[in-house]
Write a protein that binds this DNA or RNA. Sequence first.
DNA 1: CTACCGATTATCT
DNA 2: GATAATCGGTAGT
Length: 197
Amino acid sequence: MDPLSIGITCPQRSFYERDTSVVARDLLGKKLVRLLAGNSRDQERLVGIITETEAYGGEDDPASHAFHGYTPRNSIMFERCGLSYIYFIYGMYHCMNVSARSKTKQAGAVLIRSILPIEGINRMMVHRNLKNIGDVANGPGKLTRALLIDKSHNGLDLTDCTCSLHIENGKTPRRILAAPRIGISVGTEMDWRFKLS
DNA sequence: CTACCGATTATCT
DNA sequence: GATAATCGGTAGT
């Protein structure tokens, strides 16, 4: 089915071509969408409202993967904005980011830390082998597993509504909380973690 | 080539 | 609160 014909729109590339912390804040309330392959007329949609994000910069941000410059792993952070940057961490989890940066920067990304499932919830629970819905996707490693996201999805165009992984527009949230980023040992001064409250 | 360690999570005490 | 699980990427030799 044609996404446009049923009123689905995606933030376009210019949305991501802004200061990384601004993009991180504005991603709250948007939808993270995973289309599972199947009958092409009937792809299963796994969808969650983005409820928590973190902004990461380039060589100016000691907590960023891009702090030491370009490497094979972080190459997407230097690529076009609006692409998925997915990496493997702690030997067992994947984390998903969106490449983003203002014109003056050379690298950046926004980590998606948490989503609120709204479509395909049962399927997510199967992927996570859970029986209670509460914790299905409320963490960066949890949501990638719930949506079956791994390194094979690195570098996908999230502005493309037909892509197996993309981001769709949603309701603009009312209250947003800013706080220090977590899970890092440096660069904790800035309030670059954003959360729906 | 080697050694270290991480943008995490589940499962303990 | 503390810790084990588990391995690829990276920096340093």
